[in-house]
Design a protein around this nucleic acid. Sequence first.
DNA 1: ATGAAAGCGCTAACAT
DNA 2: ATGTTAGCGCTTTCAT
Lengths: 340, 340
Amino acid sequence: MNKKTTIYDIARALGITVSTVSRALNNVPTISEATRQLVLAKAKELNYSVNKIASSLSSGRSNTIGVIVPTMQIHFFAEAVHSIEKELKKHNYSLLLYQSNESYSDEVNGVKTLLEAQVDGIIASLSLETQQIAHFQEVIKQGKSLITFDRTHQDIAAPVVKLNDFEAGYLATKHLIEQGYKKIGFITTNKEIAIFQDRFSGFEAALKEADLPQLDDLIVRGELSIEAGIKGTEQILQSSIQPDAIIGGDDFTAVGIIQALKAAEIAIPATGVIGFANQTFSSFITPTLSSIDQQANKMGEECAKLFLKMVKQKDPYEDIEQVVLDPILIKRKSTCRIDN
Amino acid sequence: MNKKTTIYDIARALGITVSTVSRALNNVPTISEATRQLVLAKAKELNYSVNKIASSLSSGRSNTIGVIVPTMQIHFFAEAVHSIEKELKKHNYSLLLYQSNESYSDEVNGVKTLLEAQVDGIIASLSLETQQIAHFQEVIKQGKSLITFDRTHQDIAAPVVKLNDFEAGYLATKHLIEQGYKKIGFITTNKEIAIFQDRFSGFEAALKEADLPQLDDLIVRGELSIEAGIKGTEQILQSSIQPDAIIGGDDFTAVGIIQALKAAEIAIPATGVIGFANQTFSSFITPTLSSIDQQANKMGEECAKLFLKMVKQKDPYEDIEQVVLDPILIKRKSTCRIDN
DNA sequence: ATGAAAGCGCTAACAT
DNA sequence: ATGTTAGCGCTTTCAT
């Protein structure tokens, strides 16, 4: 493995200086087309390839962005990362990936790692554990572009891309009400995370608007998982009031609800079920599961666009944008009492 | 945003030289514990943080690995990337992600980009389009550690991590045979990709072993998707021979098969269905779908371990390892004629 | 155990 | 349009 060729080699071979070579390679206008061609030809001949590390050190820009997500095992995040990478690649940015694994300390470490790697910015979605946000303040303090999406925190003074989760909860609930459901349960998380709380607020608002009572016996707060959906449903079925619909905090929980209802020989959609996330499997299960689409791809794209806009500005934070995407109701069999 | 503190600042503040500071920060043995502590304390006081770009340029190691996968939209790859990142992070490596989007030219560009970024190695799974592999040869030529997984190419002289796909096809088929199915169909891709061909060979081998005929009318080659599963099943049902089981080239195709059978009012598992990949949804659908698990996590882990081993060697390619993981049969309702 | 100094490969004033 | 020359922040060999 022979030493890699550098711009010095090209310069020497051509009897010119490195600055000229650098200009030719970087399409700097103040250079004659003739020399540019000469340089490009020689570069190709010598199989030259830039060393971006050297370039970054010198220029102060790494053309790399760091992305922190809880885990790629969650489809939503994989999808968002997909879009971010796809979009940013078009503009010559590379993506450094870091998973927090839903751990606060890992997340703190991730920010540190990415900052040390001199990323030009960070796009992050918070871990379930995260309460403090000093690590993110540091990113802003260093003048790097920070964007948080989906799982955000109101004290972070940076642009945000998220779903209108209040609307998501409202939409799901209103849909149930329109289908004639009146005694609606909700199995959600007990964690104080904005998106889940917002969904619940939307649920409350829709009930109030329709003059329906909020039945506390039908509200379960715990985990979000298939298991939690099953347990939650069993608990609800024990209460004095029987629900005619149950909302799952996410699609996994909704699957649990479906399984528990089937086990109790309660027909669906006579009793309705709806979830959040519109996971791939939602359209395959029986009955197909109504859900609220979270627009992972759109979210990723918006994050990327926002980042590109921020890095272009002298002060990335001169105006802090907030992109709120509208949730999309996906009606399927699990809530289709009435034809549509 | 005040200039970041460098090791020069620490050196100046302590009246020592940068080399000493560097030694202290990097746990080089030849330094007194006293000065080390002094340096660490001052570093903390000045809120020092290394510039890994500078460190990389100087040392020649970036502590970054590049990962190329077709797309994070495919759960298997998201899962594999998850494991790679998780494992490598423990050893202080960062992960640069690049998606080929199933395009050959994108993949070539990805290798170029990662090489320019001076990654210490590349872990890749090939795009469906890839036939030529000169871009990967270049990685090897540069002495960087290359590992391909799952979608590999036999002409790449580098370590490989993959599933025993022959065994996967064999296992699935043998399971069906043991359940008493005799007229077994197979809906697979018409693309010449090793893993799919191997699965088919395993299918053939299992039939032969059991002295069962291979019924050409029940073999469909086209795409892999729900749609393809539906169309393929419809085509098979038109033939003179009625199948008593159909294998889907992947779980999506198997879902299509299930839907088509249901539509034709053919009972499952009276007619059996099995897929490959063990997607998340496989255990939620009705009936739950038997499948062959591809061990995405294990594959990612093995890739990471292999990489760590390679970078430790003077010549990464002194022995080219091949890790072949055993597929795991996941028996579910869609093939459970007999109790187990 | 510590210091001095030469790079790593490239960029970007500034000068010509 | 091209050349000259400092760095960018760190590592590492060679002295001491």
